[in-house]
Nucleic acid binder design. Structure first.
Length: 506
RNA sequence: GGUCGCGUAGCUCAGUCGGUAGAGCAACCGCCUUUUAAGCGGUAGGUCCUGGGUUCGAGUCCCAGCGCGAUCACCA
């Protein structure tokens, strides 16, 4: 390790002491991206220059004509091939790669020495005419080359980059320059999130920011992270959901609000779960779960079209081709249940028997409907076609404490979940806005909670007060942004779409 | 948390039956003005994840731990 860094530090010293320039550079104006420089190629000018040059060889008095456009670029050196008195470099930036050639006859001696001794990972600025090589590769024939940052770290393998996932996540900044597909995933993520925001704005939604630190962890059943405020001497919880605050905004009079931001859940980590993750939550006064369904379908359809290479909303995901054509598939919860298992979900005796096949903690203490949901998730959800986004509708009220029950069948409620590629992408409700019913549901839920849960989830009296003031009927939506990005970028792990996923510190 | 797999040079990877630690890239020295994973000649580089154990002898077998991955559980 030391010997590799030592070689680089020795060059650093030499550039400073013998060559008298600062290897950590300074401001540079007039740079163009590498892709832009590549696009500046003028094939005719390149031809004319070559002809003029060979004419000058035959007749030394002839003047060389060079109409090739000039470009000034910066990039990280990712290939270095010194060939005697000619050096080929490949630079990389956010837009792609571009080759630079430095001929000893075209630059000052000091610059040529720099070119010869450059290392993989160094950041340089090069300037010169945009032309081609004999093999037809676009190339800047540099007449200036400056070092603007000396990299001291040993680089990863030139062709494979980093393959160990742990190294890729821990040294994301190396992974990003060594593997262009990594940086592309995050560029695409950024574009897609920007598109989501434009979409929501077009649909009349106002973007808001609600507390990340909450005195009561509400809006979802997950275990929260705890932190402490010293001056107030109170424990606070990192939010598990923004839901209860967004609803307060409907009470306050905003008709359509949304938030794209982080939630934190103190649960296990796997391919589809990171402790902090991004959600899009939206609330629409006088909407319901069906208006949210339209919005969700339209949003995913648009995102899929924007990443699809064809003009159809079909996006590859692993072995699958996921088709986001509207309408998405729909199936009622009870229908999927009886279709898969051959009996009604209200046949609780059979549900209990079926649940016996699963390893469920304290199954005999659980409410019938909770068992229904356990059985449903285990046996029914996996039967859905993973290549079609599917809305499962009409969930049991018992597993949906914030949702309005259906008028004619109160054991069911107005709620759907969206599944694709075998994972849950989101859920939407027709929100409960009767304060008395809400209080009863909260109280019932807390009654079943164990001691640990009660430390972080107490009755949110302020939220109930907001409902007492009066919230319009509404539709509410929550979508997992990271999971949507996974689907749109064909990444099988949530860690591949989060820049710095949580890892256990060394 | 359970089960399975992986951990060898800076990086990517071999390492057979338990018998002297290997290659490519990267690095260093030399040659080379059109390379495309450039080439040629030479040099150097190791806590085989950590700690125990078995053995005359352990990268290799056993146990424990750490980290990562897969899967299950958990996560309405």
């Amino acid at each position: 390790m030391d010997r590799l860094e030592h070689a680089r530090r020795e060059k650093l010293r030499r550039w400073r002491e013998e060559f008298g320039f600062e290897p950590y550079g300074r401001r540079v104006d007039g740079l163009v991206a590498l892709a832009e420089a590549r696009a500046m190629l003028d094939a005719a000018a390149h031809e004319a220059y070559n002809e003029s040059k060979s004419a000058a060889k035959d007749d030394p008095s002839a003047k060389i004509v060079d109409r090739r456009p000039r470009a000034k670029v910066a990039g990280r050196c990712v290939q270095h091939r010194p060939m005697g008195k000619l050096v080929f470099l490949r630079l990389r930036d956010h837009s792609g790669d571009l080759q630079i050639s430095i001929s000893k006859s075209d630059v000052e001696g000091q610059m040529f020495t720099l070119a010869k001794k450059l290392d993989y990972g160094d950041i340089v600025v090069a300037e010169g005419p945009v032309g081609m090589t004999q093999k037809g590769e676009v190339c800047i024939w540099a007449d200036r080359l400056e070092l603007h940052c000396k990299s001291l770290a040993p680089p990863p393998e030139k062709y494979h980059g980093l393959t160990d996932p742990e190294l890729r996540y821990r040294h994301r900044y190396v992974d990003m320059y060594a593997s262009p597909e990594t940086i592309r995933v995050f560029q695409l993520r950024s574009e897609l999130v920007a598109r989501m925001r434009r979409f929501m704005e077009t649909w009349g939604y106002l973007e808001v920011e609600t507390p990340m630190m909450q005195p009561i962890a509400g809006g979802a059943a997950a275990r929260p992270f705890v932190t402490h405020h010293n001056a107030l001497d109170i424990d606070l919880y990192l939010r598990v959901a923004p839901e209860l605050y967004l609803k307060r905004l409907l009470v306050g009079g905003l008709p359509r609000v949304y938030e794209i931001n982080r939630c934190f859940r103190n649960e296990g980590i796997d391919r589809t779960h990171n402790p902090e993750f991004t959600t899009l939550e939206a609330y629409e006064a006088f909407g319901d779960c069906w208006s949210m369904l339209d919005l969700t379908e339209a949003l995913l359809h648009e995102l899929a079209l924007s990443v699809s290479e064809a003009d159809r909303p079909i996006v590859p995901y692993g072995e699958l081709e996921i088709d986001y054509s509207r309408p998405f598939d729909r199936v009622r919860y009870d229908e999927l249940f009886s279709r898969t298992l051959g009996f009604q979900m209200t046949d609780f005796a059979k549900v209990r028997a079926k649940a016996g096949e699963l390893t469920i903690k304290d199954a005999d203490k659980l409410d019938d409907w909770l068992l229904v949901n356990e059985v449903y998730e285990h046996f029914c959800e996996p039967t859905l076609d993973p290549s079609r986004p599917t809305f499962v509708t009409d969930y049991p009220s018992a597993v949906s404490p914030l949702t309005r029950p259906q008028q004619d069948r109160p054991e069911l409620c107005e709620r759907w979940e969206l599944l694709a590629a075998g994972t849950e992408l989101g859920t939407a409700y027709t929100e409960l806005n009767d304060p008395d019913v809400q209080r009863a549901k909260f109280t019932e839920q807390l009654g079943g909670a164990d001691e640990e849960v009660q430390t972080f989830r107490s009755l949110d009296e302020d939220f109930l007060n907001a409902l007492r003031v009066g919230m319009p009927p509404a539709g509410g939506l929550g979508l997992g942004v990271d999971r949507m990005i996974m689907l749109m970028t064909n990444c099988s792990s949530i860690r591949d779409v989060i820049l710095f996923p949580l890892l256990r510190p060394h």
